[in-house]
Amino acid sequence: MLGLCLVVAGVFAWLGQWQLGRALQTDPTPPGATEVVRPIDEVVQPGEYLTDSLIGQQVEVSGSFVPGDFLIVSTRYNDGDEGYWVTGQLRVDGTPGPTSVAVAVGWAKTMDEARAAAEKLEKDAAAGGSPVTVRGRLIADEGPVTPPRGSDPQTMTRMSPAALLGQWHDVDGLSVYRQYVASQSAPAGLTDIHSSPPTEGSGVNWLNIFYAIEWAVFAGFAFYLWYRLAKDAWEKEVEDLEDLKASA
């Protein structure tokens, strides 16, 4: 039993060391790295998840907006004011196959302002608008949610490329980025989206440290289990000897 407990404790100790190694970042992101504008394909590829250190990274991407896909997302705050985002499907240039990224183009105070801006953008895109280069922050999908009760089923209150994809046109064989770009420059009729730099990390993952402590506790419990079994066996032997003496 002691040998078995030693093996179990050794496994737990190894797991704790592994968690501790993951908790300490040996190559943390340099301060201000997210503020350096990088091509989007250097940061993430279509369909890939974004690592925590790259959330909020400033990126640029060139392409053309797809007509008919300027959609409005409600419940968007800009400097504390609630309003709406006008979003678009940007078909990315220079990719081997059709590839798109969702772009939050700009913010509007009212739904009427957002619809007017979306209509103007639709006309420009339908007229064969020139390619554009969008610069902004790369932000993770917020996840789709059910529309409020009694509202239009197509109403969106979260910025979710997955939800937008369900309403986009010309999506056969399309590769899509899981993230969206919050543009730093809005066209006429919309307000620039305020997007603060992400908080700099400490280089220490406290959750992993907590897990490492848990594994150490489990290793200690393995030895405690052996101690209790050994003590119970010793007490039983002592009790049997005492019974034997009493019966002699």
Rank of each mutant, 00 (worst) to 15 (best):
I139H: 11
D69S: 11
W85F: 14
D27P: 00
A104K: 09
R91N: 12
A114G: 08
L24Q: 11
Q19E: 10
I209W: 05
D232Y: 02
V103P: 07
A162Q: 15
L165C: 01
Q25C: 00
R22I: 00
W85I: 04
A118R: 07
G203E: 03
L71A: 06
W85C: 04
R135D: 05
K236S: 13
M159E: 10
D41E: 13
V8S: 09
Y84F: 15
A125V: 01
A108P: 07
S175L: 06
D52H: 07
H169P: 00
V61Q: 13
G201T: 10
G10A: 11
M156A: 15
D112W: 04
I139V: 13
A33V: 08
V204M: 05
T133C: 03
Q167T: 09
L71E: 11
G143N: 05
I40Y: 04
L207S: 07
V134F: 07
G106V: 03
A216L: 14
V204Y: 00
G16Y: 02
W168R: 12
A127M: 03
Y77G: 04
T75W: 03
E214T: 13
S175P: 03
K245G: 03
L4V: 08
R158A: 09
V105Y: 12
A125D: 10
E200Q: 14
Q154N: 11
D27S: 14
F12H: 12
V145I: 08
D41W: 01
D27H: 15
V11N: 07
N205D: 15
A126N: 04
K109I: 02
S196A: 14
Q57S: 12
W215S: 13
Q184S: 15
T51P: 02
V7S: 12
I213N: 06
E42D: 13
A246Q: 14
V44P: 05
G88F: 10
N205I: 00
R228L: 06
A230Y: 08
G173T: 08
R115V: 08
Q57K: 10
E35S: 15
S183K: 08
P67E: 12
P31I: 05
V105Q: 09
I193S: 08
P39D: 09
L121R: 03
L54W: 12
E113M: 03
T155R: 15
V61E: 08
I139R: 11
D124F: 03
A182F: 08
G63H: 10
P197C: 06
E48W: 14
I213K: 01
G150N: 04
G63C: 09
Q25W: 03
S202K: 14
A163P: 02
E200W: 01
L71K: 13
S62T: 13
I209N: 05
G173W: 04
